[in-house]
Amino acid sequence: MNCLVPHITVKDLTMAYGDFVLQRDMNFVVNRGDIFIIMGGSGCGKTTLLRNLVGLKEPARGQVFYGEVSFWESDQEEQGRIMRQFGILYQSGALWTSMTLSENIALPLREYTDLNEAAIREIASLKLSLVGLKGFEDFYPSEISGGMRKRAGLARAMALDPEILFFDEPSAGLDPISSRLLDDLILEIRESLGATIVVVSHELPSIFAIGNNSIYLDAEAKTIIGSGNPKKMLEESQNPIVRAFLTRGEQKV
């Protein structure tokens, strides 16, 4: 962690839906082992940026590099190989509702490893116990609470020991304590697995607690208007919009 190795590099990225430009000319670097926060007000394109990064939506212009490889210029096979290094936690968990939690975690393992069923079952149990859901292997997503679903989604995201974990609003819809526990869990995963973590969030406590690097997207300016460690940004940023966001609007624009 002492030497910064770029893991994800975004160059001149422009996102648009048809003619409507959401954000233009974004440049930023996520280093290996970072907990990188993408923040901004509602509707500024945070989730779209995430979809661009994980390969669900092709950007209108610009490139996303994973290490040295440009994702959107690679062929499908290469893209698939890169995408397998990702673990993604969707906003509401996005668990497959017709499978039990254990089967949800087992699916990627079955597809991409040649482990036997017993080993897969053990790994699924381990991942569930990591997120505090030991014993819930045979539950269906509809039988557990929203917070548990989110944690199960995290367990699934971690199934293949990903190098990069993406979180889309991890604390949305969680109570403050669960949200705090999830933050701790994210920190713990980074420490012990050495994963790079990208988080889309607008929960201030969690942003300050976990983030060591960030960008701020603005819907008006249509580009990045602030970047760096969120705590430092709070102290040093001169931009009134960023200040207003980080202080919950107490320092008016």
């Binding site: 381990l126 116990s129 990591l130 030991k134 014993g135 539950f139 713990e188 420490e191 012990s192």
Partner: peptide, 17 residues
């Protein structure tokens, strides 16, 4: 640390089907 995390939350009694 991961082992500690895995055993941090005990299995909820009666949860297992």
């Amino acid at each position: 640390r991961l082992l500690a995390l895995a055993s941090a939350v005990p299995e909820r009694a009666g949860a297992r089907k």
